[in-house]
């Protein structure tokens, strides 16, 4: 291809760089062009989400196994702070003690897992992809086709997967708390009231509500992390432009990358925590709503 020859000759153009970094390591071996293609798997998302998920439960299980009611260690105290926070939020939103036995641990898992996946954004944007390129190249592959995205939450599949998981839990609690008949009755009689003429409208509204909740839930996290990742790439490009420019602006651009990278990374600490918290809170709120009858 012409672009690949150009890359070989002059290094990647900014566009190539961005596209390369936004391409998943998937079962296609290249960029997925179809919006939806159920035959494809994103190996990088699976790997990083699974690895960080296992890290989450491993760390938590370690604390849980050694948990003492005496003087806690620093790590236990740190986990306890998060557990207390999640527990308080769950108690404030879900007034069903038996449901909390599952929902509160769920919220804790979501919070820490998403936080860790988001935190991958703070690694240098080229670090893991470059290492992967080295491995892929050393094992005989073409380094130009070694794709890697390390932020699992910047993949819509991951975030929508989790929000659909939350939706399934909401449906389960709807049926569990209200009974199947009661829930179906609610689907057709709320929010506008019980009347045969209003039933279709009620049902449509309920479906829209569920869909909107779930999609916005997943999209919000995805959008934030995707934009954050993109911005890190653009900042990296700014420094990379030094190579192309041999004049005075080159060092300034390099300095610009440091300043902008620091500012954005510090700001991103807030974003990754906030987005993890928001996802957790919305999970609690949606499950809480499933417990309320109209």
């Amino acid at each position: 291809m012409a672009t690949e020859e150009a890359i070989a000759a002059h290094g990647p153009t900014p566009g190539d760089y961005i596209v390369h970094h936004l391409t998943h390591l998937n079962s296609l071996g290249g960029r997925q062009t179809a919006i939806v293609d159920w035959t494809v798997f994103n190996f990088d998302t699976l790997f990083y989400s699974l690895a960080l998920g296992l890290l989450t439960v491993f760390l938590l299980a370690r604390v849980a196994r050694r948990a003492t009611s005496g003087v806690p260690g620093r790590f236990q105290a740190a986990v306890e702070i998060v557990v207390e926070m999640v527990s308080d939020q769950a108690k404030g939103i879900i007034h069903h003690a038996e449901s909390r036995l599952f929902v509160a641990p769920l919220a804790l898992t979501i919070f820490i897992w998403i936080f860790l996946m988001n935190a991958m954004d703070l690694l240098p944007v080229d670090l893991l992809p470059r290492i992967w390129q080295g491995i892929y190249g050393a094992s005989g592959g073409d380094p130009e086709h070694a794709y890697q995205r390390v932020v699992a939450t910047a993949d819509l599949n991951a975030t929508l997967g989790m929000s659909i998981g939350v939706l399934l839990i909401c449906l389960w609690y709807n049926v569990k708390i209200k009974g199947f008949g009661g829930w179906v009755h609610e689907l057709f009689s709320a929010p506008f009231g019980k009347h045969w003429a209003l039933a279709p409208i009620n049902f449509a509204m309920q479906i829209i509500e569920f869909a909107a909740k779930t999609i916005s839930h997943g999209m919000r996290l995805f959008g934030n992390m995707y934009a954050g990742e993109l911005l890190f790439m653009l900042i990296a490009l700014m420094g990379g432009a030094w190579v192309a420019d041999s004049g005075m602006t080159g060092p300034l651009l390099w300095l610009g990358q440091i300043v902008a990278g620091v500012i954005w990374a510090i700001f991103h600490i807030l974003i990754i925590t906030l987005q993890a918290f928001i996802f957790m809170m919305l999970t609690l709120v949606y499950i809480g709503q499933a417990h309320e009858s109209h």
Partner: peptide, 17 residues
Amino acid sequence: NLNSTLYAQIVVFFILA
């Protein structure tokens, strides 16, 4: 782009929870 990663993610989500 959506693909089957979604389903895997749902399963992982439930196992972790």
